[in-house]
Design a protein around this nucleic acid. Structure first.
Lengths: 114, 114
DNA sequence: ACGAAGTACATCGCCTGTCAAGGTATTATC
DNA sequence: GATAATACCTTGACAGGCGATGTACTTCGT
């Protein structure tokens, strides 16, 4: 696993929730959105993605339904729940805290006597 | 595991390297420094800390030696190697990239059509 | 003198998220 | 009719974090 992916670990769920805040979506599309937002620098491995959906649904943060039969392969759509929105709020706050912690911990200019 | 700890996962090694860039140190002291820098918000679990030392030493990023016998319990000191410094540079660059990725991925204001 | 708390190191075994590898099915393109 | 793209899913292994536990020495309060 690359270092980037390791730092991203555990944020998969929040990334998915962020995209579902916008609109209902399905696995393949969500992954394309991630790739677009990161200019191709990051994308989920499929196994990671579908494990995350399962976890999120089990936790009650998302709900799923099969898309209408149109042309193309069948799609399982996901929508975020109220609990999911609350979880998202918390996770983003948490990210901001963690980001500040790591910025401090990676600083070589820190004054130990402060 | 708290969300914070999960995001921090994989950054343990870099945190340790950062502190060793400053001066040689030992487990207990390193952990105290982490707590000080994060104003008590974060600290390693001992098991995490000592596994990290092992990993870092096996990778050639740090070297260890027993401290002079003084009063108090014996201490195993660690010093960062040249390879460790290079690794640190890379990891911090990586953190900056990942930080930007997550900031983008957690944004609800992102323009999908951009 | 004695017990508690602090300093300091170390290991074992479990848990969790990631991912390589494999599989299924449909549609579009050449 | 083959190839690529779309779309979903599962299994098993791996790696890092951590709870629990153990060792040993020192300091401090009473």
């Amino acid at each position: 696993m690359s270092i980037t992916a390791d730092t991203l670990r555990g944020n998969t769920d929040t990334i998915i929730l962020t995209l579902l805040m916008r609109k209902d979506s399905y696995g393949y599309e969500i992954n394309k959105s991630v790739q677009k937002r990161t200019k191709g620098e990051y994308g989920f491995k499929e196994a990671t993605l579908y494990t995350a959906f399962k976890r999120l649904e089990q936790n009650g943060f998302i709900r799923s339904y099969w898309g209408e039969d149109g042309p193309g392969a069948r799609r399982r759509y996901y929508s975020i729940t109220e609990a999911g929105r609350r979880q998202w709020e918390e996770s983003v706050k948490d990210w901001e805290i963690t980001r500040a912690l790591l910025d401090a911990l990676f600083s070589v200019d820190y004054d130990e006597e402060a």
